[in-house]
Design a protein around this nucleic acid. Structure first.
Length: 229
DNA sequence: TGCCAGGCCGGGT
DNA sequence: ACCCGGCATGGC
């Protein structure tokens, strides 16, 4: 277990040393305010299977329309909301998902900070109860908006680990999540940067196509048996 | 040009 | 319990 912990921490150190801080949320939005938290939650939904650059345009549209708040989105019609978020793709389904999320917040009193302020397990459950909020989106909200030490797993995480033979091909979301949470100190700032770094490594060194792990910062960790539970 | 992006849902088997 | 089609824009 100790070797396990050290190895995952060393992987983090190696990625950070090579790539530097990734400046993900809440650096830009600011999770210290209600507006920042809502923006992170909205972004988490909009970025589902979508390039972040497109999400930024959608968020800019919402802000320009003065609609980047609970009441604003709640008051908007489907067509109007869908049009604003069009650049983010899947705009019809995402408009519904945003509405579903906002409805959950409204039904809990309408205060995003109060909505997020509950025990982490309970929060995750409440988020997963929203249609359109799956595990990654829920964990992203819990980590980046609510500041909880809950590890976010995504397609990059699974691919990077798989490419380095650190997990089985059939490892599921919860198993990979548990792998990190069991081996690392429960530190939201660490989890925040770790996830962002895994995404950066996935983009640059573990692409679906193209060069395989050429000069990847994690090459030295490939086939590391200490990651087995 | 085709492939990819910080997934998720609902229906079918 | 899995598998799959659908959803859609913008960048490289």
């Amino acid at each position: 277990m100790q070797a396990h912990r050290r190895t995952l921490q060393e992987m983090y150190d190696a990625m950070l040393a090579r790539l530097g801080p990734q400046h993900w949320w809440p650096a830009e939005a600011g999770a210290d305010s209600a507006a920042g938290k809502l923006e992170i939650c909205v972004g988490a939904i909009l970025t589902q299977n979508t390039n972040w650059g497109n999400v930024e345009r959608a968020i800019a549209n919402l802000r320009s329309a003065g609609a980047l708040d609970v009441a604003g989105i709640d008051a908007m019609g489907h067509a109007e909301l869908a049009e604003l978020i069009r650049p983010a793709g899947y705009f019809n389904v995402k408009a519904k998902r945003l509405k579903n999320f906002i409805r959950a917040v409204t039904e809990a009193g309408g205060d995003i900070e109060a909505f997020l302020d509950r025990p982490t397990d309970e929060l995750r459950e409440a988020l997963l109860a929203v249609s359109g909020v799956g595990r990654e989106t829920a964990d992203s909200m819990a980590l980046y908006a609510a500041g909880r030490a809950t590890f976010v797993v995504d397609a990059y995480t699974a691919r990077v680990l798989l490419r380095h033979a650190l997990v089985d091909e059939d490892a599921n979301y919860e198993q990979i999540k548990e792998l990190f949470e069991a081996a690392l100190p429960a530190d939201a700032d660490l989890f925040n940067e770790y996830h962002a770094l895994l995404v950066a490594v996935g983009k640059r060194y573990c692409r679906k196509r193209g060069p395989l792990c050429d000069d990847c910062p994690l090459t030295a960790f490939a086939h590391d048996a200490t990651l087995d539970p």
